[in-house]
Design a protein around this nucleic acid. Sequence first.
RNA 1: GAGCGCGUAGCUCAGAUGGUAGAGCACCUGACUUUUAAUCAGGUGGUCCUGGGUUCGAGUCCCAGCGCGCUCACCA
Length: 540
Amino acid sequence: MASNLREIAEHSSAWPFEEARKIVARLNKRPKDEIIFATGYGPSGLPHIGTFGEVARTTMVRHAFRVLTGDKVKTRLIAFSDDMDGLRKVPDNIPNKDMVAEHLGKPLTKVPDPFGTHPSFGEHNNARLRAFLDVFGFEYEFLSATACYTAGRFDETLLRVLAHFDAVMGIMLPSLREERAQTYSPFLPISERTGVVLQVPVIAHDGKAGTITYEDPDTGETVTTPVTGGRCKLQWKPDWAMRWVALGIDYEMAGKDLIDSVKLSGEICRAIGGRPPEGFNYELFLDEKGQKISKSKGNGLTIDEWLRYASPESLSLFMYREPKAAKRLYFDVIPRHVDEYHQYLDAYQRQDDRQRLSNPVWHIHSGHPPKIDMPITFAMLLALVSSSNAENAETLWGFIGRYRPGVTPQTHPKLNELVDYAIHYFRDFVLPAKTYREPGEQERAALSDLRDALSQLPSDASAGDIQDVVYEVGRREPFLDKTGKIKTRDGKPGVSLEWFNMLYQVLLGQEKGPRFGSFVAVYGLKNTIEMIDGALARSA
RNA sequence: GAGCGCGUAGCUCAGAUGGUAGAGCACCUGACUUUUAAUCAGGUGGUCCUGGGUUCGAGUCCCAGCGCGCUCACCA
């Protein structure tokens, strides 16, 4: 069975397999004991939706690779934090900005934690990142740049970079503008005096001694320092190349904004005798207007927002789909992905192995998608929640039970999760957008009468009985039917549409709604009466 | 300037290995309901950006062009 699956995987056009085959080819060329996947995180801050995407996608490739190799080759996923980068500017979204401002330029792991929960800002961010990855159950190994540098784990490779100093400069300089090229150095010494990561020209380097020499920008003093032991860090692109070599990275994907960086880092990697990892450039996420999503602009969706309205699995589906196409990430895409996720789950049960391997849920669930019965779509649920004024899960379940008899939170726990998401949607989007029309004099009188009539009904009155009462109260001006088309069986005057429209516009703040008797039966007589009282008080 | 992506129904988008163009929404009709849908059954709607090429056959593969968008070139 397993070998059969493997054979199919070898010809699958699903992108994780395409990627994994690149790694297999790499492995065949240069055999090694284990394959190392990497993802990196900048210092600028907190985990965001792109972070999730990168880890989720890398995990999919990793799993595809394991299937392709019959799980005979060990794999690791390194989550690498650039926590030794100098703090360039004070982020907007943190407390104690003044304190942090005093430490500008220092490695993040030397800046005190503005939140006061960790020894340093860098460690704070690292903890946030790990907590974030853990929520999703990702399997990974965390590495801190600071820890690697100071423990000497990078020393050997740092010396190799130093030995190829001129070659590295030869690669970097043509990519820089003239004024920047004047001062560029791949090595950034960390000042013994101030602790700041210095961006200064290197006036001499000594490969044998393993040192560089620079001029202290404040004192003008000439300083010679070893490049090892955490006394120097590397500039971004050489740093990436060094890390690939030092850690033996085989695969790392990156956003398309980093295409040039990947290229240059790859050249540097080769220059110091390494082999750049296999890679993949994914497209960036756009907001609904097609603008790039950025944390500073605050456009697009955050991961918290997605998870407030839908499951992590639906977000994984979003990440699986066409990683090379620019995709808009805004609220409207959520319901579709939730429903498609369940469609794929359903389809999976009916598919053969070949189809299964190109089914997104196979990749999302690492080959073991669950079997879930979802009797109602999320799109319908959202329509239901907004048309039924269901402010809480109990009310919404009342409507669901009416619509799909026998379906309960107990029989369908996954649907219950969707119900919670739908309620969030209602509170955040539907409720604030409601505009309640003011009733006129005659309408107020009718509403008041309706309130009294409903209060006379037994608490277990049926939807039909309630509907009859609603008609009876509405059988008055200005709601009588003028068209002559509507007639009751016993010849009483008909009630026009206006009566019901008024109820929805005044009571629910919407143009249309469900059959009113059914609505009251589920919503509750008492709640309905309170709602009418509220409307009368609001307009009094 | 360099790189990447996109162009399919009114809108948002699917269309593995080439084989009679699809979905959702919107719209229209009907059913159900003494009038209100969130239900159900149907339906209208497309020069698949353009022009070549390969092929028995191209939305799909190749070349060229047009249009749109994004990214990079300071830092990570």
